[in-house]
Structure formats: C-alpha cells, structure tokens
C-alpha cells in the first residue's frame, strides 16, 4: 500500500518534473545568452496552453494541441524579443527582469480580458488508467513523457550538433569573445528566443494535458522552474532538466507530509536551501555562465 502510493507519487513527480524541466530549460537558455532571469517564461507557457485549445480545430489528438501551443509560444517569444528585450540589451539585467515581469502581467491581462478566468480542459477522450505494476498510468502520461523527452533530445541536438547551437554555446560562454570572433549575435538571439518560446509553449500544453488550462498556471509554474534552473546551476541546460525532475519529485513526494497547498512552497524551499548551501547550484562545472 505504502509502496504503491509512493511509486505513483514518484511517477507523477517525474511527469510534473519534465514539465518543469522544459520551462527551466527555456529560462536557463535565456539566462545563459541574454543574461537575465526571464519572469515572462511562465506566462508564455500559459499562452501556449490556451493556444493548445485551438488544436482540435486543426486536427484531433494531443499532437495538434502541442503543435499549436508551441507555435504560439515561439511567436510570442520572438515578438517580445524584437519589441522589448532587444532594445533593453545594453541596459542592466534588472531592467530586463522588471520588463519581463511587466510582460508576464500584460500577457496574462490580455488573456483574462478576452477569455475570462475560467479553467478549461482539452477535449481529449477520457480513458481509464492502465495498471503497470504498482503504477496507474494514463495514456496521456505516456504522451507527455514522449513529447518532453523528444523535445529535450531535439534541443540538446541543436545545442551540440548544429552550427547555430554551437554559436549559442559560444555566446553563452563568453559574449565578448564571441562578438570579437565575428558571431552574428542577432541570429543567435533570435534562434535562442525561438527555442525558448517553443519550450515554454510545450511546457504549458503538457501541463494543460496533465491538469487543466487556467490563466494562472504559468505564473504558478514559474517558481518551481526558477528553483530548477538555480538548482541545476543557472545557464546549464543539463542541470536545468535534472533540476526540474528533482523539483517535480520533491513536490509530489512531499504531498503526503505537507499537504496539497504547501506542495507549491516546496519549490521555494528547495531554491532557498540550494542557494544557502551551494549558491552555484549542483552542476557548476558545466555551466554556460561563469
């Protein structure tokens, strides 16, 4: 009994963790290259989740939901790069951070103004969970894991195998050096914001598939994602993903002890403890920054 409870919590934690990982990866990429913590990432995820509601118009199934969400996230992300973050690039990180919070509010305001505050669900068929050993597994759980893993694999392939990915890592390593050696920063930045938007949009839709779609979902996801980013050493993509999974597991496994509400506080607690004990995060060696 006890074991199967914890096994199921751990499985749920893994899934939540992957959702957090995707957003954390988005945040860590922005931090590594544009050098500020992007507080708008959560609300980009929300927009992705809402755009996912259009999926059924394009075609059935989870795939279209995800594609719509990712497209919306990418569009929003790149648009705000040109309108907001590029002009702010020369100023302090604090300016960009404040602006990104402003963007988060603005985006959420637009959503709630036009669509209201109601929670929504994707029109997916309700299927009974299948037992896998001690686990109760929804088919959508499998889809979420597959989508997240494929996306992570794609991003790491881009970062390590393609020329633009290598340039991204070079800029993250040393912006000055990269500029001197003739890397066109603008293209790198557009590519980075594009990927960051795709990831945030995906994270939002997957959370929507797992739970419900609501205007506050992204903002609530932001703190665990920041915690994951810092836990895994800010600027370190692999660290962000592992950090996300750790946070997801910690949140779910702590639920029997701290209750459902405080589960949200677990992310903050992990963040705080990490910063106090190991401010550079767990994976400082391979970080893109410093």
């Amino acid at each position: 009994m006890g074991f199967s409870l914890f096994a199921n919590l751990a499985f749920n934690g893994l899934i939540t963790g992957l959702v957090v990982s995707l957003l954390a990866l988005s945040i860590t990429l922005v931090f590594g290259i544009a050098r500020f913590p992007n507080a708008a990432a959560g609300d980009v995820a929300t927009v992705g989740a809402f755009a996912g509601l259009l999926g059924p118009l394009a075609g059935g199934g989870t795939l279209w939901i995800i594609l719509c969400g990712m497209a919306a996230g990418a569009l929003l992300s790149v648009a705000f790069y040109f309108l907001l973050f590029r002009p702010l690039a020369g100023k302090s990180a604090v300016s960009s951070l404040i602006a990104s919070i402003g963007m988060a509010f603005f985006v959420r305001a637009a959503l709630t103004f036009f669509l209201g505050h109601d929670q929504r669900v994707y029109p997916l068929p309700i299927v009974r969970a299948m037992p896998v050993g001690p686990l109760r597994v929804q088919p959508t759980d499998i889809e979420i894991v597959v989508a997240a893993v494929l996306a992570l694999a794609a991003v790491f392939s881009i970062l390590h195998l393609t020329p633009i990915g290598k340039r991204m890592r070079a800029v993250a390593d040393n912006a000055e050096l990269a500029r001197v050696s003739g890397i066109r920063a603008n293209r790198v930045l557009v590519a980075m914001w594009l990927i960051a938007g795709l990831l945030a949009g995906l994270s939002g839709t997957l959370l929507g598939v797992k739970t419900v779609v609501s205007p506050e979902m992204g903002w609530d996801l932001l703190m665990p994602a920041f915690a994951a980013t810092i836990l895994g050493t800010i600027g370190n993509p692999v660290g962000a993903v592992l950090g996300g999974v750790l946070i997801g597991l910690a949140q779910e496994l702590s639920t029997p002890f701290v209750g459902f509400t405080y589960k949200l506080g677990v992310g903050f607690l992990v963040l705080l403890v990490t910063l106090l004990i190991r401010p550079q995060g767990l994976f400082a060696k391979n970080s893109l920054v410093r």
Binding site: L84, L88, I98, A99, G102, F105, F106, A109, T112, G116
Partner: peptide, 23 residues
C-alpha cells in the same frame, strides 16, 4: 473582472514602457 484585467495590463505595460523609454 474585465476591469481588473485592464489594471493588470496597464501595470504590465507601464513596467515595459518605463524600462524601455524612461527608466
């Protein structure tokens, strides 16, 4: 409720515009 969205939006917009044009 819509008015509260407007307030949120205006605060968000002013944060962006202030940072961009008049820090």
């Amino acid at each position: 409720v819509e008015m509260s969205s407007v307030r949120l939006g205006v605060i968000g917009l002013s944060m962006m515009l202030l940072m961009r044009f008049r820090p």
